[in-house]
Computed example of a mutant assay.
Amino acid sequence: MSLIEVTDLSRTFEVRRKVSRFRREVHEVRAVDHLSFAVGAGEMVGYIGPNGAGKSTTIKMLTGILVPSSGSLSVAGIDPSRNRVELTRRIGVVFGQRTTLWWDLPLRDSFELLRRIYRIDRDRYRRNLAEFTELLELGDLLDTPVRQLSLGQRMRGDIAAALLHDPEILYLDEPTIGLDVVSKGRLREFLRTLNAERGVTLLLTTHDLQDIEQLCSRVMVIDHGFLVFDGSLELLHERGGSTRTLVVDLVDEAPPIDVPGAEVRKVEGPRQWLSFPAKASAAPVVAAVAASYDVADLSITEPAIEDVIRAIYTR
């Protein structure tokens, strides 16, 4: 069953541009252009694209903040723009550059206010707060004013706040922006646990493609308002012409290695870099190299998703 259904969705804006001292022209900008997709219950989907591609506009329409110019969408069986209050009880939203917490209140008081706003049952609230406090390591921060929290601490608080009312869907817009490596790792582990144990559906927009690789099994790529790719990470690498790299350290310097199924990309002394298609098995290439050359060491480097996305954007 699809929790999110988007059909032929478009959103346009009018932009006024000054052309002379007393005259302005109105231009229509199409931020989202005839977009269609569906997201099933329990999926973890990465929604990516360059700046200005239409990602945030899509999220705002899915949450009811913006009304579509044309097309239709349904979130948990609800029309977001017509039933925003009902929808807020079914979804959670985290915008990385904005907070839903009260700046001068302790974290605990912000959570209590949200309990009252969402009318969460006290027992359920206590259970959720205890679980999220443990998983997100918020215990020492509950009595700290939000303005005194670091970015990573505040982000963990925002995610807990978005989940207190047990939403079915969680929208994450740049949730790891500005976070250090440790904070990112902790946050990703929490999101994996949330999806596995509670079945929460996640739609993640981010420029940090490691978030996509570590969390999402499906990727949607949007550019200039169009959906240019929708599929698995494996298919994304295939479409982008990804290659794996076999790094070979020979005992002595040698001419470029010549084996079937691989091509030498670089040679530095006894070290050589061979590329081969990402979907191909490395075993035949490794066996051929080992059979014909004196090998001191070798390793395989997987394709970088950044290179794949860059290739798709360029095309």
Rank of each mutant, 00 (worst) to 15 (best):
T7Q: 15
D8N: 15
E14I: 12
R17I: 14
V19W: 13
V19F: 09
F22M: 10
E25M: 09
V26Q: 09
E28L: 14
E28K: 14
V29N: 02
L35V: 12
S36C: 13
M44I: 14
K55T: 05
T57S: 07
L66D: 05
S70V: 06
G77S: 11
V85G: 00
E86C: 05
L87H: 03
R90S: 04
F95N: 00
T99M: 11
W102V: 04
D104S: 14
L105P: 02
F111T: 02
F111M: 10
E112A: 15
R115Y: 10
I120K: 10
D123R: 14
R126G: 01
A130W: 08
A130H: 12
E131M: 13
T133S: 04
L135W: 12
L149V: 09
S150P: 10
R156G: 00
R156A: 04
L164P: 02
E168C: 06
E174I: 06
P175N: 02
K184L: 07
K184P: 06
R188K: 07
V200N: 06
L204A: 01
Q210T: 14
S217R: 14
R218F: 08
V219N: 06
V221C: 12
I222N: 08
H224E: 13
H224S: 12
G225C: 06
G225K: 01
G225I: 03
L227P: 00
F229D: 03
D230K: 06
G231M: 08
L235E: 15
L236E: 07
G241W: 00
T243H: 14
T245L: 11
L250K: 03
A254N: 07
P260V: 11
G261S: 14
A262L: 08
A262I: 05
A262R: 04
E268T: 09
R271G: 02
W273R: 12
L274K: 12
L274H: 12
A278D: 04
A283F: 01
A283P: 00
V285Q: 00
A290T: 13
D294R: 15
V295Y: 01
D297L: 08
I300G: 00
D307K: 07
V308D: 04
V308P: 01
I309G: 07
Y313C: 10
Y313W: 11
Y313S: 11
